[in-house]
Amino acid sequence: MIQPIYFIILSLIIFVLGIIAFFIKRDLITMFMAVEVMLNAANLAFIALTKAIGIIDGQIIVLFVITVAAAEAAVGLAIILLIFRQKKTIRTEDIQVMKG
C-alpha cells in the first residue's frame, strides 16, 4: 500500500506547476487550462485525504468540483470567444480595458 502522503506531495508539485504555467502563458485559453491543472491538483489532494481518513465525503466534493469546473469552462470559454470577436486577440497584454 502506498502512503497517502506521496499523493499529497504529488498534488503539491502539480499545483505549483499550474501556478507557474499560469504566469508563463500569455494567451487567455492556455492560462485557463493552467487553472484547470490547479483544480486537478486540489482534487487529487481531496481524494488522498479521503483515503487517509476513511470518509467518503471527499469524493463527493471532487464530483462537485468537476461539475463546477465544467460549468466554469463553458462560461469562461464563451467569454473568451466574445473577447476574441471584439478585439481580434486573446493575448493578455493587449487587453487592458479595466485600467484605472
Partner: peptide, 18 residues
Amino acid sequence: LICYLQTGFIKDYALVFL
C-alpha cells in the same frame, strides 16, 4: 495616485492575489 495600481493586466492582479 491609487489609480496607478489598476494596470488592467490580468497577470498583475493574479500576482497580487497569489
